[in-house]
Structure formats: structure tokens, C-alpha cells
Nucleic acid binder design. Structure first.
Length: 124
RNA sequence: AAAGUGAGUUGCCUUAUCGUUCUAAAUAUAUUUUAGAAAGGAAAGUCCGGACACCAUAGCGUAACAUAAUGGGUAACGCCCGUCUAUUAUAUACUAAUAUGGACAAGUGCAACAGAAAGUAUGUACAGGUAAUGCUGUAGUGAAACCAGGUAAACUCUAUGUGGUGCAAUGCUAUGUAAACCAGCGUUUGAGUGUUUCGCGCACAAGUUGGAGGGUAAGCAGUUACAUUUUAACAGCAAUGUUAGAAGCAGAUAAAUGAUAAGGAUUGUGUUUUUUCACAAUACAGAAUCCGGCUUAUAGACUCACUUUUAUA
């Protein structure tokens, strides 16, 4: 199975990020928050990761959390890959303590379930 | 040998699987394959000094900030290395450490305890002296008692130095377009701009400020080849320099350098006579235009110097 996550799939454009925060809907599974919306894209999705500077003042800690979340997402990215529609995605870490890999995996699993539900609703 | 203090160096390793960025090559031209490279001693604080870029570059006064023995090093410095000096420590020696380092003979301020009095001086006792008087000396307090006293890590003064903005600099390309509309101030009776703390002065000067509205917000250069790193020789007490050889060593931009598993290493704790075994820990911390410093953070390991204690000779 393809688990790659190259540069093309990163959310970079300022315009797209602004429109995502303006129009996007959110799924919450503490300590993760997913903001998403549909958009016409070349790729099946574009994804970004974010950590609040308020709770993590050191760059090392922020990098660590972003890397872990990205790793978790990378392994499950197939559930966001659909043929018809494309998505903009933004994951935000809301917690106030450094998470472990397993902790994040659990949270992501919750988000996965919610995502499947919303998808089925969407199709219906 | 142990402990302590100071200075310096270092900053866990291997394998497998799955990934990220850049460069090169190959083709099947793509979410391809192969090869190579990919965080630090502080990348941190943004405190000094530069490089580089743009703007400015009559002057005078004023303000602010920095520096302060002396010689050298350096692109430069408020940094570094010598020497002198001061203080502290001891083993009293050109040993070590150190936020010692212009001026108290311009002015203002400050000074515990003791003391009559710490500066608007002059009490007590004794002695001397005078027409007379703290006029003179001694005693007593204190680190210091008219001595040009101490204190500038008190204000202050003196000397010297400092133009401003920072890679979101700056240049090019792309896209869109509006030299339009409304209002204020103004065109030699001068709005405004520059001179970047302010004032005067000087120069330029026909536009300029606000509103409403429209467009872009992405690509390239700058941007990683040099005050570069490293080895040797020579010069120098040293900081450092010169010559010769070798090396190419991050380049992201909502920001790559990661995740998981296994094994090992080191340290600690528990158990055990020991081996073993089990558990835990492996710091501080993440490049953002680039260098030189300073400051702060730092588990563990190693080296050197000094001190103390113990043992042996």
C-alpha cells in the first residue's frame, strides 16, 4: 500500500488556508481537531499540521508533535483518498502536554470513525 | 585512591521496515528507479561587532547610548591575548581567581557604630600664648577629625566614538489595473519631503493626506564558495598570522532532516557472595541572509591544574 506523503500533498497556499479556516467544517477528538472542506485540486487532498505556540513555546516540542501527527496521518491517508471529490485538511493539536505516538494513534482512530460517518452522510 | 574547586573537550551506537527535502544520473517522463548529502555547541537570548543591500550624506546646538591603565591581535568589536596595577585566597611565590582600572583640586549628594563635632565645626581636661578670643598643641572617639579627607557599581564632569533601516533589505518576471471618484491642506504669502532624539538652520518642492473601491499576496535571483573547514611547517610568551597540501560540508519556506521495532553501550535503583536478572533514565535543545564574539541552558563521559583527606613507600 502506498504510504507516501510528498511535498505536492502539503497545504501551502495562503489563499487556500484562509478559505479553509473561513468555510471549513471541523471534527473534534481530543486532543486532535480536524478542519476540512472540499476544493478543486490536482491531487486528492492537501494537508497541513499545526500546533499552538501558546502551549508549546519551544520549537523542538512543536516540531515533535507535528512530525508525530504527520506520521499517524501518513499511515492512514487512504481514507481521505476519494475518486470524485478533493479535500483541504488541517490538523490542529489542542493538548497542553507532549503526546506519545500511541496516544495520537487512538485520537486519530476516533477521527477516522467520525470521518467515515460524515462521508456516508455526504453521499446519502 | 577518594572528595571538592576551576578550565577545556565531547554531546550514545548498530541493524531492519516505512517515510521527508535537495543534488546528480538513468529511463518507462512519473506520487519512477539508482547513487550521494541533510541541525548545534549552544542552531537559543537577539546583547555587541561586521559583511551585504537600499535610503541619506551643509552646519550648529541639544539629547541618548557606549567605552575608559598600557601594548598587541582582528574585517571589526564593548571580544581575545600579553604586561602593569588593585582586591581576595592561601602554602607569602612575579601562585591562583576576579563585573579592580579617567576625574572628588568644578558643583551637588551620601557616610552604620563610636564621638562634642564627619563640615553650617570646635565641647571637656591639661599646657602654652594674647589686650582679648579655639589663637596653638596634647589627650579622648573613629577607617578617616581642615587634610585640596573618603565615595563616581552616587548624580555629575572630561575625553573618544556612534547617520538610518534590516534579506518582510533589494532586483527581475508574472497577474490585475484606476494617471479614474469623493473630501482636507497646498502651489513662491510654501502643503509636504530629506537632514532619522529634538530645535534652529539648510536643501528639494507641486503635489500630498484620508475615505470608498479594485488587483496581487507566486515564481526566480539575493541564497549558501568562503574573514570556509582541516593537516603540517614556520613566526610569536600568547591571542593570532604566513606558507604548502587536502576537502566541498543543510538549504526548508504553514518551514524537510522523521516514525516504529529489535539488539547493544553508559549510568542509577532493586536482588544476589559474584556473574546474572528486572526496572528506569540517556541532557539542554531545532538552521531561516551570512560570519566573529558575549550571555544563558545542559544527563552522562573524558582530560588537565590546584586543594583537602586517607593508604603505601
Amino acid at each position: 500500500m502506498n504510504e507516501k506523503l510528498p511535498k505536492v500533498l502539503k497545504l501551502k497556499s495562503k489563499k487556500q488556508i484562509e478559505s479553509l479556516f473561513k468555510n471549513g467544517k471541523s471534527l473534534k477528538a481530543y486532543p486532535l481537531l480536524l478542519i476540512y472542506c472540499t476544493e478543486d485540486l490536482d491531487t486528492s487532498f492537501k494537508v497541513g499540521f499545526s500546533v499552538s505556540k501558546r502551549f508549546f513555546k519551544q520549537a523542538v516540542q512543536r516540531n515533535r508533535i507535528k512530525r508525530l501527527t504527520r506520521e499517524v496521518f501518513r499511515k492512514k491517508k487512504h481514507i481521505f483518498t476519494l475518486d470524485e471529490t478533493q479535500f483541504l485538511l488541517m490538523f490542529i493539536y489542542l493538548g497542553k502536554e507532549l503526546p506519545s505516538y500511541e496516544h495520537l494513534e487512538k485520537a486519530f482512530h476516533k477521527i477516522e470513525n467520525k470521518w467515515q460517518k460524515t462521508l456516508s452522510n455526504y453521499e446519502a
